[in-house]
Nucleic acid binder design. Structure first.
Lengths: 344, 344
DNA sequence: AATCTACTCGGTAACGTTACCAAGCCTATT
DNA sequence: AATAGGCTTGGTAACGTTACCGAGTAGATT
């Protein structure tokens, strides 16, 4: 049962273990013939180096991690792929760590750094506020991606790549207002979760107050569900609540496309036509929005571009070309079939 | 920059490193007071044990891995969550490894086993045929989940938890035939990929031949795309091809719900009504099918149940209560809005 | 008073690998 | 002929941790 080690290979080949190590790691100081002989033996025996031992000794481990909160979000999918591709190009390994909504991403990151010899971390999704002292402890370059930006000036201690959620949310709300909608319901995350949802709600409020429209709390629907807030099911449930409440509205803005899908279904079941009777707008720009009927009006985040900038920024930090940076990307208002002028 | 180690803790506490190790690992042979003192120091200094060193020495690592091909599949999401929860209950760590469609899952698994001291592996998605010799090398219990079952008797060498894709696919085809459809187009994966797509196509053919209907190759559309075959976009493209081909059909059966969504969109754009003009059926039972308009008729796999059985089976194997088993679960034909009697 | 047991604890040898140093051999240079 | 320097190679000391052995202390038993 005992595993085969580098020593076994060395013995079988009649060389020293240093030589085997050199063969494996593409070191310069080795005779090509010796190297080939060793490599053949390795392939023959099916030997695989023990990475724990490697990481223990090595000084130049090339490994980064991506920490994801909520793996279901299809928005992350291209991000992961791009990051992985770029990492591979730089000959870095990438580990993917999925964490639950209630877990503390920074604590998990700390463990991860020790375990692997991590050179960098990318955070996907999650809270936008962290204990600076905790972050300090990471001691490894890290980039928050898609976590929203705040107005705080103390944001100086970390890097992030994001969309200005508040401004983009306002953009969508302004668009709906421009269409002539006056009573816009919004379906958002629980305010307690310090996540992007909070910022998007702020943007909604900004737009209304800028036009002197009073904010009607009855139009704001908060999702209590903590586990997986951005789900179609939650959108469906909230829309049912909205309909049952009897409050007047001509448009629904959800802070995620998944929610919008659920809303559309609920409205459809209630016999309401979209967009003739009610307009529905989402946020994220996930693929389903393009193939749903009606196609969803949304705010599309430049996922691919952001992913590329994220990984590049991380490597810049790892290689000392940059300390930290804050990149804000413009998102795009994509007008499709689900929104129109109020019809009544 | 040097990391803080167990030695530092021992020195600071004025005890031996063995004592610190005992404190960390909840060993019995330690004075509760000493333990508390050490633990406080650890918390104070922010020390985190180096997992590489641990895994190198340890004999009882408690870690399993889940290997996923194609992370975007929402079908896997509940599976991962359930597996993780069960693992946690058993105090096992779980690592998630995402691999590309073209990668060899067994080879990746081999590396993973060495790196972490894996006690078991679960394969999600991927080919259903593997080199038995390669599998032999794993030397660690593993379970294939959702990879389809074959008729081969040489399947004796591994465990799997699956749905009888061929039979279920036939079930759907029979249902469409019973409705009165005679010309059913099928959108499937490339035959080269030895994946579930192949089995589902077989089921389709079974149903037709059983009724003496000749198989019309013009109704079979294979997705060439290797990267991410089960996408809405591919469904859309294939449906466009189907429409452009001018071949007659009254129903479309896709081997994945995502494909069905794309098909629906393409049909909608072509001015065809679902199900009045064309019936559309999917496979998988992902959430979007319930919230799409029209709601999709599909084959729903019991994902949660399968996940639970998978992880239980793996632990049975790890703990020696079982060697290997083949579990086949019945899937459910869910009839919803997207299918009806042919209308013409 | 002597022995025994239970409870603690420290020292040390691994675990499998890589980094580093020293040494051997050969060819080219002085 | 002697030295220098480039290629190769092997030996050995770490890396940070846990398993194991042995030993010390205290109270309980003979």
């Amino acid at each position: 049962m005992s595993e085969i080690t580098i020593k076994d290979i060395a013995r079988e080949c009649g060389v020293g273990i240093s030589t085997v190590s050199r063969a494996i790691n593409n070191h310069a100081d080795i005779n090509p013939e010796t190297k080939q002989m060793v490599m053949e033996k390795i392939k023959e025996t099916g030997y695989i180096p023990n990475n724990s031992a490697r990481n223990l000794k090595r000084t130049d481990a090339r490994c980064i991690a991506v920490l994801i909160k909520g793996i279901t979000n299809p928005f992350f999918s291209p991000v992961i792929q791009i990051v992985e591709a770029q990492a591979q190009k730089k000959r870095y390994a990438m580990v993917l760590q999925h964490i639950e909504a209630y877990e503390d991403e920074v604590a998990v990151a700390l463990e991860l750094i020790k375990e692997k010899r991590l050179r960098g971390i990318i955070f996907l999704g999650g809270a936008y506020q962290h204990d600076p002292e905790q972050l300090e402890k990471l001691k490894v370059p890290f980039v928050f991606s898609t976590i929203g930006i705040t107005q705080d000036e103390e944001k100086e201690t970390y890097s992030n790549v994001a969309v200005d959620d508040r401004a983009e949310s306002r953009k969508m709300t302004d668009y709906l207002l421009d269409l002539g909608h006056k009573r816009i319901a919004i379906i958002t995350e629980s305010m307690e979760a310090q996540s992007i949802g909070t910022l998007r709600l702020e943007g909604y409020k900004d737009a209304l107050t800028a036009r002197g429209i009073e904010i009607d709390e009855r139009l704001i629907f908060e999702i209590k569900e903590k586990q997986e807030p951005y789900s179609m099911e939650n959108g469906y449930k909230m829309a049912k609540e909205l309909l049952a409440s009897g409050v007047d509205f001509t448009a629904v803005f959800t802070i995620a496309d998944f929610l919008a899908v659920g809303v559309c279904r609920a409205l459809h079941e209630a016999g309401l036509r979209i967009p003739e009777d009610v307009s529905v707008a989402g946020y994220d720009g996930i693929p389903i929005g393009e193939f749903y009927t009606p196609q969803l009006t949304t705010i599309r985040q430049p996922a691919e571009l952001m992913a590329e900038k994220t990984i590049n920024l991380l490597f810049d930090m790892i290689e000392g070309r940059s300390t930290y940076e804050h990149m804000v990307f413009p998102a795009e208002l994509v007008v499709r079939e689900s929104t129109a002028k109020p019809g009544r």
